[in-house]
Amino acid sequence: MKNFNDIYNQNYRKIYGVACNMLHDSDDARDVIQDIFIYLHKVLKKGKIIEKPPNWLMRVTINRCIDLLNNRKKFCTEEHIPIVVTEEKILEKKQDREILKEALKQLNPKERALATLYGEGASYKEMAEITGIKFTSIGGTLSRTLKKLNEILKTLHYDLH
């Protein structure tokens, strides 16, 4: 049980960032992360040992986000999704982030998870463990995902530098 605080402090920001990138809603991301840490606390309290807590947390976060996105799809059409319009005077970096978020929304949840992990600097091994994609397939799958993301960005009239 003594590891919970360390695990929480070392991993909260990173998995919160991943949840935000996948869900595009900070309130939903906080809810998902809260549920995950409550679940982690219960698991540790039962005496179970988690060998690689960062990978475990990332996998659980991505799976919960995918579940939430899939449930949203069942009950929500695109007409009901609010479109965020940025003001002209917002910094270019923020605009870039918004364009990237919009592009990520157009990927399926597995692709979004892979692109997010890549952006977070995860290794291929970590990507394989977290997403459940075979290690030998990560390179090709990631390459196709990044190519697809680049094509989406082009349709949004944005070129990667």
Rank of each mutant, 00 (worst) to 15 (best):
I33T: 01
T131L: 11
D31W: 03
E88A: 14
H24A: 14
E151C: 03
K93M: 15
R30G: 01
V60Y: 14
G139S: 15
L114G: 07
T141W: 04
L44R: 06
G17T: 12
D28W: 10
P109R: 11
M127P: 05
V85G: 02
Y118A: 12
L153E: 03
I83F: 08
R144C: 04
M127W: 08
P82Y: 05
F75A: 01
I152D: 02
E111F: 12
K110E: 15
V43G: 00
T77M: 06
E111K: 10
K48F: 12
R59M: 11
I50G: 02
I49P: 06
K14T: 12
C20G: 00
H24V: 03
L44G: 10
N71R: 15
I81E: 06
E51N: 11
G47A: 14
E98D: 11
L100R: 10
Y39D: 02
A113E: 15
K101S: 07
N71G: 09
F4T: 00
G119D: 12
S123Y: 08
I7M: 13
G140W: 14
N3P: 01
V43A: 08
A113T: 12
I36S: 00
G119Q: 15
D35E: 15
E98N: 09
G132M: 05
N108I: 13
L104R: 09
R144Q: 07
K14H: 13
K73F: 08
I36Y: 14
S143G: 00
D25L: 06
L44A: 04
N108V: 12
M1E: 08
G140A: 00
P82T: 12
L44C: 05
P54K: 08
K73L: 15
T155Q: 09
R97Q: 06
R72M: 13
L23S: 03
S26E: 15
I38R: 07
F4C: 00
T136D: 10
M127K: 04
K93P: 01
V84T: 14
L142R: 15
A29E: 06
A29W: 11
T141A: 09
F135K: 11
R112C: 07
H157G: 01
R144D: 07
D159L: 14
E111D: 12
K42H: 10
D67T: 11
I62T: 12
H80G: 00
L100C: 06
H161C: 00
A122C: 15
E78P: 02
P54D: 08
I62D: 05
